[in-house]
Write a protein that binds this DNA or RNA. Structure first.
Lengths: 353, 353
DNA sequence: TCGCTTTTGTCAACCGGTTGCCATAGATTG
DNA sequence: CAATCTATGGCAACCGGTTGACAAAAGCGA
C-alpha cells in the first residue's frame, strides 16, 4: 500500500493518500500544489526563491496560498536549512533598566525585518550566561550578547558556530557595538572643572566589566587633561544598593564630585548622601552613566553621560541581520556617540556655611 | 568535485549510506545508535520516554550520547510533535517598567522548567498585538498576553489554538492572572481618609484598559465606603508625559488627593505639580499603582498600591506550563494580592498658609 | 526548419527525530 | 514443559519544507 498513485482513479478518491488533507491541521505546500495544479517543489520555490518560477505560476500559487490561508511551518523549514528567522539576546539582568532600551531596540529591528527575538537572562553569572548562550545557539540564527560576563575565548568560540554580536564590550574578532565614552566623559569632566571642582572620584562597577574599565580610563584621561585629581573607588554591586554602600567611601575620599559606573549607583549614592544631610549639588556633584529610565525622577534630577542604548540594541540587531544575509564583513566595531545630559545633580560647589 | 566519498576506501566503505557522519555537523541519534549498537528509534525512546527501554540499554545510550556530546535538534523534534519547549510573551510596551518584572518572572519560570521565552511587543496597538500573537503561535507551545489590548473574542480564538494565559485582565473562558486590587485600594483610601482628605480624584488609564476600569471601580467603592467624594479624570496616555498633562485637570478639580492608574502617571503628575510650586504631600497627596522600578527615586518617594508583577509573570508561566503538561484545568483566574506601600507622597493635608 | 541555449517544472532524496505496529526473547504461570 | 504474557528493541512511515539533478518546454538565431 505504499503505492501513492492510483492508475485508475477517476476523481480524487483519496485512499491511503500520503498528503491527504482532512481540514484538520494547517494547510501545507502539498495542499497548495493540489489547488494550483503544480508540484510541491514548485510551490516551495515560488514561496521562497523569487524569480525561480514564471510570473504566471507564481500568481497561481500565491492565490492558492492566500485562499488556503497558508503559513509556512517554521520547523519544517528550519530542519533542512537550519535557518529559523530568529535571534537570541542575552542580557545580564532583565530588571536592570540599562537593558530595557537595548531590548526594545533589538526587538523593534527584529520585528521590522521579520525576525523573532528570543530573550534570555544570565543573572549576572558567567556560567549561566554561557549555558543560556549554548542553549539558544541550537534554535537561533545568531546571538546578541549585551554586556557579557563570559570571557573573550568563550565568546569567540560561540561566534565560530553562528554569528554573534557583542554590545558594551570589545572582543577581538567579533563584531561589537560600544558607546564611545570619550565625548560624553570629557564634556562631563569639563563641566565639573568649569564649576570649580578639583578632585573627583569614579565609582567603578563589577571588576570584570569591560565597560567599567573603559569609563575609568576615560575619566582619568579627561581629568588629567583638565588637571583634576581623580580617584577610583570600588562598589560592591552596580545597583542602587551598591550606591548606598559606597557613600561612606565617597565621603571619606574628600572629593567634591563623583562619577559613577552607572546611574543606579549614582541614584543610590545620592539617596544615601541626602539622607545624611548632604545637599546635592551644593556640597557634592554627582554624575551617572547611561541615562536610564528614571534618571530624571530624582530630586535633583540626575546629570548623566547618556549612552544611546536603544541605538545599541538596534545597531547590534542590524549588524547581526546583515551578517546573516551575507552583507557586510564579519568583524569591526560600531561606535555610537555618548553625550552629557546636564541636569540638577551636578553644578557649582557652594562654600561651606 | 562535490563527491565527498571515495568509492574505493578500504575501511568505512559507506556506500550511499543514508546517515553517514563526516564529523562536520552535529551528532544525531543515528550516530548514537551506531556507537551504542542499537536502533535509532531505541535511542529516541531512551532519550525521551523514560522507562520505555531497559536500564542497561538506557545506560549504553546515555554514555554514547555523552561521549558524542549529543544535543537534540529542536526542529527535528518539533516537526512531528509540534512541541517546541517554548512559549511566547507579548507585552504592550517593553520600556514600560510595569512589564519588567512580569518579563523577569516569566523568564525565570521558563528557564527553571526548561522552556525558552520568546518576547514580542505590541507597541500598545491591538492590531500589532494580534499580528504578533498569530506569528508567535506558529512557533510556540503557548502564549502569555500581558495587559492585552485585543478584544475578548480574538483572545478566545487564539486560546482555541493553543494554551493562552492572560495577565492583568479577565477574559471569560481563558485562564487569567490578575492582581486583586481591592485590598490595596482600600488600604490606600483608608489612609487618605485618616489623613483628613475628603475629595479624591482617580486619573484613569487607556479607555480600553480592563485594569483601569477595575481600579476606578475599586477606588469609587472604597471612597463610598469611607464617605469620600471620588471624581474620575482621563489621561491622554499612561506615561510620565500623560501625568504632566493631566496636572491642569487635577488642580481644576479641587481635590486634595489623587490616585493614578499607574506610577508613571503619578510621577509625571507630581513633577508637574511641584514645578508649579505645589508641595507634595502637604498640599496634595499622590498615590500610584504598581510600585514600578524607580517609584522610590522621586522626592518624596511615591506612595503606591503594589501589584506583585513578578509573581504575576511567574504565576502565568506556571499556569501555562501546567496546562501544557496536562495538569490542572484550563480556565480559572489566579488572583494575587495587592498592598499599599506607604511612602512620602501621601499624608496629612497642611492648612494653607 | 533545425540545433542550441535558457527557462521552468518535476522527481526524489534529504533534514533528524517520533511513534504505531510487530517480532522476539525472557518471565510467569498452570 | 507447554502456554501465555510482557518487556524490549527493530522496522518503516511519517512531520513539511528544501534543493540538486534532470527533462520538457520555450526562445532564438541562422
Amino acid at each position: 500500500m505504499t503505492e501513492p498513485k492510483k492508475p485508475d482513479a477517476p476523481a480524487a478518491t483519496g485512499r491511503a493518500n500520503k498528503h491527504a488533507r482532512d481540514g484538520k491541521s494547517n494547510p501545507t505546500i502539498y495542499d497548495i500544489a493540489k489547488v494550483a495544479g503544480v508540484n510541491p517543489s514548485t510551490v516551495s520555490r515560488a514561496l521562497s526563491k523569487p524569480g525561480r518560477v514564471s510570473a504566471k505560476t507564481q500568481k497561481l500559487i500565491e492565490d492558492a496560498a492566500a485562499e488556503l490561508n497558508y503559513q509556512v511551518n517554521p520547523f519544517a523549514r528550519a530542519l533542512p536549512t537550519g535557518r529559523t528567522n530568529t535571534f537570541g539576546l542575552i542580557v545580564a539582568d532583565i530588571t536592570n533598566p540599562t537593558f530595557f532600551d537595548i531590548i526594545r531596540g533589538a526587538e523593534t529591528t527584529a520585528t521590522l525585518r521579520d525576525y523573532t527575538l528570543v530573550l534570555a537572562e544570565s543573572a549576572e553569572s558567567a556560567v549561566t550566561e554561557l549555558t543560556a548562550a549554548r542553549r539558544l545557539m541550537a534554535t537561533v540564527d545568531g546571538l546578541i550578547l549585551a554586556s557579557p560576563r563570559t570571557d573573550d575565548d568563550n565568546i569567540r568560540a560561540l561566534a565560530r558556530d553562528k554569528p554573534v554580536v557583542v554590545i558594551n564590550r570589545e572582543v577581538e574578532g567579533v563584531p561589537c557595538v560600544v558607546p564611545d565614552v570619550n565625548k560624553g566623559i570629557s564634556e562631563a569632566v569639563r563641566s565639573l572643572a568649569a564649576n570649580g571642582h578639583t578632585k573627583v572620584a569614579f565609582v567603578a562597577g563589577p571588576s570584570q566589566s569591560w565597560m567599567s574599565a573603559r569609563r575609568w580610563e576615560g575619566v582619568r584621561a579627561a581629568c588629567e587633561w583638565s588637571r583634576l585629581e581623580a580617584v577610583r573607588l570600588d562598589s560592591t554591586k552596580p545597583t542602587v544598593d551598591g550606591g548606598r554602600q559606597v557613600a561612606r567611601d565617597v565621603r571619606a575620599s574628600g572629593v567634591t564630585a563623583v562619577l559613577t559606573y552607572n546611574d543606579l549607583l549614582a541614584i543610590g549614592l545620592m539617596q544615601e548622601l541626602q539622607a545624611a544631610g548632604i545637599v546635592v549639588p551644593d556640597q557634592i556633584s554627582i554624575v551617572g552613566f547611561d541615562d536610564i529610565f528614571g534618571a530624571d525622577f530624582t530630586t535633583p534630577p540626575l546629570t548623566t553621560v547618556r549612552s544611546p542604548l536603544g541605538e545599541c540594541g538596534a545597531g547590534a540587531a542590524t549588524l547581526l541581520l546583515d551578517l546573516l544575509h551575507g552583507m557586510g564583513e564579519p568583524a569591526g566595531t560600531l561606535r555610537v556617540e555618548t553625550e552629557l545630559v546636564l541636569r540638577g545633580s551636578s553644578g557649582r560647589l557652594l562654600p561651606a556655611r
